[in-house]
């Protein structure tokens, strides 16, 4: 699947964000320093422990998820859309890469960016509070799946967008609210039964809960069920990506 051509595209995609740390790594680092300082230190001391964990430790998995998926999504959507806007995506489209290879290269590179940002946030969190990992393998697999999932969503967003405003709308008005209502800052146990059921419709809940389980060993949902839902959803999204590339959606006349 990863031919020389696909590796070349993957390398190009990695270099694109690695060479622009001021645009790609610095903003989430600063934002998360502020989150940890304000929610963890300033406000956290006044908030009761949740499920037996200090508040700063409880929110850490959610913030990692937020940073990871936002960056995976942004990278894929921006790379595709900027390439379409300036038409240099034609360099890829006129090459002998298969549509599957194109999607895999774009998604893999964007997922890597999401994971790097996730690691940066974890490292920042570790500066504020001791961080433990209770289920390392589960955590690694889950982080991999959610970063691929949102890179896959980013491909759809990049193909669908008609201008740069559309990218902003997707990130600010769809992604971010879903994450904030995905139990980043609270436990599902704190909600009424009705809202708890409604929350289960939000895919972010499964991600935050899974990553929290990986770090803290605590979850509101059944961990393997959450992972299963995420893997299934990721497979569907990647299939949609490849289909859209095959059909030339947003790419060809």
């Amino acid at each position: 699947m990863f031919s020389t051509g696909a590796r070349a595209l993957f390398r190009r995609e990695i270099l694109r964000f690695v060479r622009r740390p001021k645009n790609t790594f610095l903003p989430p680092a600063i934002t998360n320093v502020l989150y940890f300082a304000v929610f963890g230190i300033v406000l956290g001391g006044r908030i009761d422990r949740i499920a037996g964990f200090d508040y700063i430790l409880f929110i850490l998995p959610g913030l990692i998820v937020l940073g990871t998926i936002s960056n995976a999504f942004e990278n894929a959507s921006f790379s595709i859309f900027h390439g379409r806007w300036n038409e240099y995506i034609h360099e890829t489209l006129t090459s002998p890469l298969s549509y599957l290879e194109m999607v895999v290269a774009y998604v893999a590179a964007s997922a890597v960016r999401g994971l790097i940002v996730g690691a940066i946030i974890a490292a920042i969190g570790a500066l504020f509070t001791p961080v433990t990992v209770e289920h390392a393998l589960y955590l690694v697999v889950t982080m991999g799946v959610i970063s691929v999932l949102f890179a896959g969503f980013g491909i759809i967003g990049g193909l669908w967008a008609r201008d740069f405003d559309d990218l902003t709308v997707m990130n600010q008005f769809i992604l971010r609210p879903l994450v904030f209502f995905g139990a980043v800052f609270y436990s599902l146990e704190m909600l009424t039964p009705t809202w708890r059921q409604v929350s289960r419709l939000n895919p972010m809940v499964y991600m935050v809960d899974s990553v929290r389980y990986g770090f803290l060993g605590y979850s509101d949902l059944v961990p393997l069920t959450s992972l299963g839902v995420l893997v299934g959803l990721t497979a569907v999204v990647l299939a949609i990506d490849v289909t859209l590339f095959k059909r030339g959606f947003g790419l060809t006349d």
Binding site: A8, R12, L15, R16, R19, Y88, H90, E91, S95
Partner: peptide, 28 residues
């Protein structure tokens, strides 16, 4: 070689060409 200037703006032109060759399966 198209009419439009549809070239990757993110990289120096030497790298743009190396990337294009790479997409065609040519080793780095």
């Amino acid at each position: 070689a198209p009419q439009e200037f549809n070239v990757d703006r993110f990289f120096p032109i030497r790298e743009v060409l190396a990337h294009k060759a790479g997409y065609h399966g040519i080793p780095q």
